[in-house]
């Protein structure tokens, strides 16, 4: 299935916040979770995830914390903020109304 990149761009914040809202996650985990949950539907350049996460952090919708791993590496975990939860709730309601209207107009079930 092909989708417009503009459609994905407009939904990136909602998609990322939905994943982060479930559990604190790190970048690579987000890529894997996204692939699994969308059943391979969303394919994107993984590196572009990080500017999107930074944007969310700048908007104070998420915060990040570094954790040291036993391997000596460091992982940056993302946590949703109260502001982020509220934003996500609003976006979900907006999406629900929008998709319902599109389905009604297009005659989709």
């Amino acid at each position: 299935m092909v989708y417009s990149s503009e459609l994905l761009k407009g939904s990136v914040d909602t998609i990322l916040l939905s994943l982060i809202a479930e559990n604190p996650v790190y970048g690579y985990q987000i890529v894997r979770e996204l692939e699994k949950k969308s059943q391979g539907y969303f394919v994107f350049k993984e590196g572009t995830l990080y500017p999107a996460l930074r944007r969310l952090e700048r908007k104070r919708l998420v915060i990040s914390k570094w954790e040291d791993l036993q391997s000596g590496r460091k992982r940056r975990y993302y946590y949703i903020t109260d502001q982020g939860s509220k934003f996500l709730k609003d976006k979900k309601a907006e999406w629900q109304g929008f998709s319902l209207a599109i389905n009604l107009i297009a005659g989709l079930p």
């Binding site: 350049k45 993984e46 590196g47 572009t48 990080y50 500017p51 930074r54 944007r55 700048r58």
Partner: peptide, 17 residues
């Protein structure tokens, strides 16, 4: 290859910061 173009990622990060 999966991570993508270094130019695109750097450009976006530079803009965000």
């Amino acid at each position: 290859e999966a991570l993508g173009s270094t130019e695109e990622i750097a450009r976006e990060l530079n803009q965000v910061y």
